[in-house]
Design a protein around this nucleic acid. Structure first.
Lengths: 198, 198, 198, 198
DNA sequence: GATGAATGAGTTTTCATTCAT
DNA sequence: CATGAATGAAAACTCATTCAT
């Protein structure tokens, strides 16, 4: 009787074994050989489960993202203030806890910008829309509760973009020394305008 | 007596010869050999003027950026409305005219995120601060003219980040079909809040 | 199940295939490509088994040295005269039979003098000490048999050095037309002094 | 009126300017560019005075050798003991004072063993014969003075070879920790045999 | 199902040498 | 006389991918 392997699970297992290596060594400098050795499988096996190196990164990000989202969802459920929710969301861009995912995310954006294959774009699109919907919902709830003005719903897309833009600037330049501070300034300034004065 | 060459000028000349190739073929897929051939010089000559491939991109971006800035400055001087100025600034992210620089800029961000050498970071920092100051000045002038509320000055950094964030999202995802529209929505929404109602 | 290869054996096999080429063309003028082609393997395979070109030479010398030593040991066992033994030992430096190893050895010394990595030095040290011990033993046996005076034991290190020095001079100059003759003169002169007169 | 340049002198001047660089950086790792810059002349000029890089090394060694020989000759003239003279000669292989020339000499031997062009061989031959004659003369004088036995004249060639052999072994192996000591052991042992007992 | 041995195209980079001025 | 700009051949080395077992 042949051994039946849960392909999807093994794919996840291999990807997770590689996670640490990706975080410590960066994506670019890793070879399939190293990754295979780390995962404790043969090089050929890597190709049974992944199309190529990017595909592995892809899976790792995917796993971490899902985990991160679950966590964030829970975190958000405890918060009632709209502004606070937005801030909670944004702490991905600076919290110590998310450092490894952030490192990976940075590299993933970099790869996405150059080698934009369909799957990557689809994945990034899903992510973006997921977060966009999140913002939409948070803002809508705030509007419904009368916390913020109805108009603020239009900031949903822009808000995420601002976070990502500041994050990238903080990584690629010395102009943003403290992302957290800058994000907070931005959010505070915005909320002074959109909060309903009672 | 030997020929004395204006090194800086020749560097610029070579870089410009490569510009088109970079735009059409992308940075990653070009080899020094191809670039040298295109520039009509030997491979060794390339290494006399540039440290490596990135250094060439660097020079190209630099040249185009300076040119772009000069042009934008002129463009802005004809405009008096603060909101319009911001929009003018942002059309870099979607105007047909800036497409090639944009393509390059995208790849440059990508490289910056991964191979962060000191020079690149410094260049990116200069760019960021340059644009940040621009926004600051535009907003300050608007405030001084009584067009927008004093508080809006705090959006300076965030505004550029929003532009860049939306741009990246537009490149890496399908979620932003029309950057121009999204940017305009964002700016319009924001200005409704910061414009001084008369 | 994958093919499991005896790495050490294959290393030896490849090295031996390259032997002839090294001898006829010299080390310096050979490229990994040529060597790979000669060995009938791919360039990458060469790098699977050897760190670099020097490492291949290293293995070749190693193999030939071991073989040579075994042979010499046998040759020496048939001889009883101390002087004759020394001569037998030295014929490495001129015998027709050892020409190829000698050619390689010459190049190896050359490399050792310039690129002194730890492994090479260790190998050379082992060789030197091996031969030194040989001389020591030969001389000691001669002393024990009453053939030569006890004092001669101090020549052990010097003797090997003299051989090597004359060999190098014979390769690098025209001053030593006939190494065999010079070595014999030296040995004969020395033995006239250290032989116990009966 | 054209400037008349003393070709031979300028050749010497350039070579001497390069001396330090050769000693500190080794021959192999220096480029003509660096040497030209160090000598304060153009690359083209280097080719006016030297055939190639080896030719420069050649000239440097030549100059240093001549200087060294003059010095040694003077040193020897103050000594009367034959044994002491031999030792004085050999201290080239370990004295602190000759370290730079020795470093260069080592590399020169290395080059000679591989790229044996006619001129190098001729130069090495001249050197060898020069030293050989020196030893011959020292020994002959010792014989004439009745210090050492007539037979010792046959050691002339061998003696130099022993020195060189020990030197090379000391550079390429860990087996000769203290060249000075080994050389002295060798000479002392030999002189016990060839000195005329009074 | 799994493996790891084998590959070779492809790229970067160096540097001796030439030669127009 | 002197120069340094320009060259391009040449070499080392990497690594994603294949495939026989």
């Amino acid at each position: 009787m042949p051994i039946i392997v849960d392909k999807a699970q093994k794919r996840k297992d291999i990807a997770l074994s590689c996670k640490e290596l990706f975080i410590t060594h960066g994506i670019k400098d890793l070879t399939i050989s190293q990754l295979a050795k780390t995962a404790g499988v043969g090089k050929g096996t890597m190709y049974d489960y992944f199309k190529n190196k990017e595909d592995i990164v892809f899976e790792v990000i995917n796993i971490l993202m899902v985990k991160h989202n679950l966590h964030k969802e829970k975190e958000l459920s405890d918060i009632s203030s709209t502004k606070e929710k937005i801030k909670i969301f944004f702490n991905f861009f600076y919290s110590k806890k998310d450092e490894s995912l952030r490192t990976l995310y940075k590299e993933f954006i970099s790869i996405s910008l150059i080698t934009a294959n369909e799957e990557m774009i689809d994945f990034q699109t899903t992510c973006f829309e997921n977060y966009y919907q999140w913002f939409r919902q948070i803002l809508q709830e705030g509007i419904d509760k009368g916390e913020i003005i109805p108009h603020s719903i239009h900031f949903a897309k822009g808000l995420f973009a601002t976070g990502e833009g500041l994050f990238i600037a903080s990584v690629a330049t010395k102009a943003i020394a403290d992302v957290e501070k800058e994000l907070n300034i931005y959010i505070d300034t915005l909320f002074q305008l959109i909060e309903v004065k009672k």
